[in-house]
Structures are given as C-alpha cells and as structure tokens.
Design a binder for these strands. Structure first.
Length: 273
DNA sequence: CGGTAGACCTGACCGC
DNA sequence: TGCGGTCAGGTCTACC
C-alpha cells in the first residue's frame, strides 16, 4: 500500500480536486472496509465541501465545511480515481463514490478493503486509532539524538523498529528497506546495538528516501496510482526493495531477500553491516 | 510493558 | 484450464 509518500501524493492530488466543489451525492457500496463506513456519512456530507486535507502518518483528515472531520486511510490497496462524470463507470471495488458539482466523480477503490473511511472526532481530528502515532519523520522531531535514545533498550530488529508506527510514523515495508540501505545498516541488526554514528546516518537516509519518493509521485508497484491515474516513478529508483538477486547499484553484490516478522526485507550483504 | 503471530481481504502468479 | 499454495505497499487485536 501506500506508505507516507503515496498518501502524501494522494493528499496533494485530492487538494487540487475537492476544495471549492460541492458534494452533490455520496454513495456507499460496501458493508465494510477495516470498519464499516458509517452509513450516515452519505447524508452528512451531501451539499458540503472539503475545505482542507491534512495528513497524520498514513491517515488523511478531510475537513468538511459542515465542521466535521473525515478520517481516510488507504490500507494496502486503496486509491482514489477521479474522472469526468460522462467517462465514469463504476467498477467492482469502488466502495465510496462522490459526485461533485463540476460534473466529475471521485471514487475510492480498494480491492483488499484494508482501508478506512470514518468520522474523526469533530474539531480535534481525533480518533482512537490516531492515539498511537509516533514522530513525523520529515519533522525536526526525528533527529540523531532522539533516534539513538529511542533505539536503545529495544531488543527487536531494525526492520521491526522502523516499521513500528508508534516510534516513527509513515514508513512501510518499501521505505524501511530503502532507508536502511542508504544508512548501511542491515535490517536484521538489533535496534539496541545500533551506534550513535549509525543512528546519525539513518536520520538523513529516512528523510532523503521519503522526500525523493514524494518528488517522484510515489511508487507504483501493482495498483498504486495518483488521483489522476498517474503512476509514481520511485520504483525505478529502488536500491534494494523488490530487487532480489539483482546487482547492488553500489557494489554489484546480488541483493538478498529474507523474511522478518512475516514480511520481506531486502538488503545488500556487502554495503550493509 | 515489549515483542510477535494471527487476523482481516482480494487478486496475481506459479507449479502441477 | 483448474486448483492449491504463496505473496502483496497496513495495522489492529490477542497472546506470550
């Protein structure tokens, strides 16, 4: 799914579409995503418009003109499709469809239905699932001293530590592998044994990979698309992710793929210690 | 408390 | 062509 760069790309795409346009009709076409889509959303957002969209971790918060906030998460396979009404045809996994006042249609499409569309508590952008979110990796809160202190005392691997949204939010399976490559740290390393110097390398590695991915419009592996149907290009710049057996771009050693906590990790056994 | 399987879903792909 | 197994960008809950 969409990790932070894909959510951010989606958020920016939606901001070009939604504000200033009235929602004429909202249709719900599924029993539930991760949670049921509250049925009253349909009536509540009719005639409203979206005034702003912000992001916390991989969650988007849509501020509505009626004062309410909608929490939107793309799960593993969620994306928005935007098209002229005359060109729109509902497809199998279009679960939430907005008809807008400029004769366009915005559809939330999500085959695996791990996404989320729910109310956030009014005004505070609050939701029970927003309570456990760690620092924003693109903010100054993520710095070398902070990271080193927070890795100390953790017996788990670097892979698991960086995937833990309660420590740093927004990283997922792709960008953890990529960031660890740039920092020269193997995903199997125990977090507590990472040195201060390595932590200092990891901070810019994380920021660099996320910013570069946002600049490229995200990564399109299978089904990720921008709101306008555009694919992202960052997958062309993967150094290790999804490159098992291919030569390291730095030293030509074949990239290794292993399984950690049931998920694939990729690394270069020569460049990463 | 920290850490790790299991659960939730569909679709694509591979080997037989 | 069909079938079973495996894998996929997330993250909550249950259990040790």
């Amino acid at each position: 799914m969409p990790e932070l760069p894909e959510v951010e790309t989606t958020r920016r795409g939606l901001l070009k579409i939604l504000p200033g346009k009235k929602i004429l009709r909202a249709e719900i076409h599924t029993e539930k995503l991760r949670l049921p889509i509250p049925p009253e959303i349909s009536a509540a957002i009719k005639s409203a418009h979206v005034t702003d969209i912000t992001r916390r971790a991989k969650y988007m918060i849509w501020r509505l003109s009626n004062g309410r906030d909608l929490l939107v998460h793309l799960g593993m396979s969620g994306r928005f499709r935007h098209s002229a009404k005359k060109d729109f045809e509902k497809t199998k996994h279009d679960h939430f469809i907005l008809y807008l006042s400029d004769n366009t249609v915005l559809a939330y499409h999500d085959p695996r239905r791990f996404g989320l569309i729910d109310w956030a508590k009014q005004g505070t952008a609050d939701h029970s699932w927003l309570g456990n979110i760690g620092v924003d990796p693109l903010s100054r809160d993520l710095n070398a001293d902070w990271l080193y202190e927070n890795l100390r005392g953790r017996k788990t691997t670097m892979k698991a530590a960086l995937l833990d949204q309660k420590m740093i939010n927004g990283l997922g399976n792709i960008y953890v592998s990529e960031a660890l490559f740039y920092a020269g740290i193997r995903p199997t390393r125990i977090a507590a044994k990472v040195t201060k110097l390595e932590a200092a390398r990891l901070v810019p590695a994380i920021k660099k990979v996320l910013n570069a991915a946002i600049k490229s419009g995200g990564s399109s592996l299978r089904d990720y698309r921008d709101v306008d149907g555009q694919v992202g290009f960052f997958q062309e710049r993967f150094t290790v992710y999804d490159r098992a057996g291919e030569p390291c771009r730095t030293c030509a050693t074949p990239i290794r793929q292993i399984t950690q906590n049931g998920r694939s990790s990729y690394f270069c056994s020569h460049c990463q210690k």
